[in-house]
Write a protein that binds this DNA or RNA. Structure first.
Lengths: 123, 123, 123, 123
DNA sequence: GTGGTCTAGACCACA
DNA sequence: GTGGTCTAGACCACG
């Protein structure tokens, strides 16, 4: 899972998204311990402050728990995670549909196209 | 066709999108002349600099042609337009599918969800 | 309204509180424009980043609205402000009562003491 | 008397508060001997260093006396204790009243609110 | 000139 | 060694 950071959006938001994805997909499992801020920052080739900002947001959202002097862990609340996942998915979909409609595509067209493309992708 | 500008994203990108949409949907037809920057800016209730910036980007992409002494026209190259539209759509879709898969959704799930949500949207 | 910053708690939280107080008490009225981040930072003798952090939190809470390139204004939503004020008051009171009880004071005692002291204060 | 430690504030300050409370309320009476640091630490399920730190602060405030070779005792000076208690209470109350007034609450309002809330709390 | 982001580097409290 | 905060200074996008 390489850290892909593009310069077109704030880095810290991309960090948030990618860490969320790692949580959703089980790379970081329920209750497991996260590396230290400094380590994660180094691995992502990012300033520790930036990584800290991302983690702070994730904690605010309840996905991560900070133990003041002994690192951070992923929440053990599966519902919390499921909720965040659903929320993220909805936002993705709505954004996508809105853009496609702005471009003049009708719903039928969108579904047809996406169907076609999806066939060609790896499972 | 009201100009809908939200304050959460750069104005000029929204202008680009909306003008593109107008081109794609034929509000501005092939080869037709665009209003002056000032007029367009005024109609959109936007700073002329901002409108200027949007138009510059559209020209860069080949959708608009600037005639130094006589304003701007939409390109007459239908292929160019179709190409721009397709290109934009493809990138949207691929980005979307990739993110959804990273989140752990299978193709069937994605299609099911998007189908559901699309039903609730305005045509 | 001098900026009183003590070294025993994070500065940015103190900035948040003091700006909230200024909003609640009308120093900054509904819809009025705030000074620039840099100006406010200078006035409070604080790094602009720190002031920015405080203002970002206030915006997150809905008390302040950021206009991307033209400064910030206080929300015009009186309810929003009233709500924040009530919330802040409740937290103050609960914190206070909890501490007093921890110290062994009964409710009657607390009320008696506070009554006495309040008499001696300026209206 | 269970040791209630929350992870949101420094452990050692919570230890201080709880030990103070035990002194104020007579659980540890004037002149009585305290358990060893290790025992207290174990009972509170806390690192001995942390307990040590809390006791050091209490000694600094004069509530506890360290006898280099024979452990610690509570001070025999009743005035000292009463003074500490009163001092702490006064500061709590004044801070509280000041903040509430800054928020624009009149004394009557404060008393009314606090009265309401106090009713809902455990004795 | 406005807000937003990022970095580098430092210091602190805590356990 | 852990997270948290702060500063200084820089750069960027925007209008």
């Amino acid at each position: 899972m390489p850290w892909e950071l593009k310069p077109d959006r704030p880095i810290y938001t991309q960090l948030i998204e990618q860490i969320e994805l790692m949580i959703f997909s089980g790379v970081y499992s329920l209750g497991s311990k996260l590396p230290s801020v400094r380590d994660m920052a180094q691995e992502a080739a990012v300033n520790p402050n930036t990584m800290q900002r991302a983690l702070a947001k994730l904690e605010e959202d309840g996905l991560i728990i900070t133990h003041r002097t002994s690192g951070r862990t992923i929440t053990e609340d599966a519902n919390m995670i499921e909720e965040a996942k659903t929320k993220m998915a909805e936002r993705q979909i709505l954004d996508f549909l809105e853009k496609m409609q702005l471009m003049g595509f009708k719903q039928k067209e969108i579904l047809a196209i996406i169907n076609d493309i999806a066939k060609g992708m790896k499972e």
